[in-house]
Amino acid sequence: MSLLSTHGLLAGYGDMRALHGIDFAVDPGETVALIGANGAGKSTLLRAIMGLLPVAAEMVQFDGKPVGGTAPHRMVQSGVAIVPEGRRLFSGMTVEENLRVASEHAAAPHNTPWTQERVYDLFPILREKARTPVENLSGGQQQMVSIGRGLLAQPRVLLCDEISLGLAPRVVREIYAALPQVTAQGTALVLVEQDVGLAKQASQRLYCLLEGRVTLEGQSSDISRDDISAAYFGASHALD
């Protein structure tokens, strides 16, 4: 059984519906990538799972229980964490304080707990910058803090929203190199990613979204570039 799944998920902003029945699932320890053009609904899907948008309870299941529409802080405490788009760090607070807020409100650890030390081992630069206010960090360092914050919530599923956005390729490689250590202990990863090549490479399975619907789903290694571009741009729709 899947750890986290959605079933005909409908969600939107006010009167505008952005997701038209998404079926999505992720297993423990699995890395799943979500790709799609801007406005396809990738971030909306993560926000809906996280309880940041109103959805019906049975449309999102976690650990066999309906959790749709649960308040975000309760989702965190039951084991779902998010690395939000745009990093969203707490400005005016140091790296260490940002991490502490997360560990002080974390879920009960399911496996070897993430500690501040383990986060610093994963991203050694953060140990040097521990006492620096987060607004003085580089973009890559801020993204590392944001990921560290997500890990310290002790998640069983970590949702990552565009963690490579706006970062230098070297930094992106460094961040992606750290991800296998996250899944090694059974944490599932959901990666929203603009870079299709990176998404294919880093994941076992991928979903492609177009205008709020899943247009492609499968093993990342089996899917060809042509399948992806058809699903990504909706070429097959145009031909129908």
Binding site: L52, P84, R88, S91, M93, A106
Partner: peptide, 24 residues
């Protein structure tokens, strides 16, 4: 204090605070 950090976090970005487990 733990409480003080959670209040400062919520005042910096209330939605982000909720996303790390703070009940604003």
């Amino acid at each position: 204090t733990r409480y003080g950090r959670s209040l400062r976090a919520a005042s910096a970005d209330v939605e982000a605070a909720a996303m790390v487990g703070v009940n604003p």
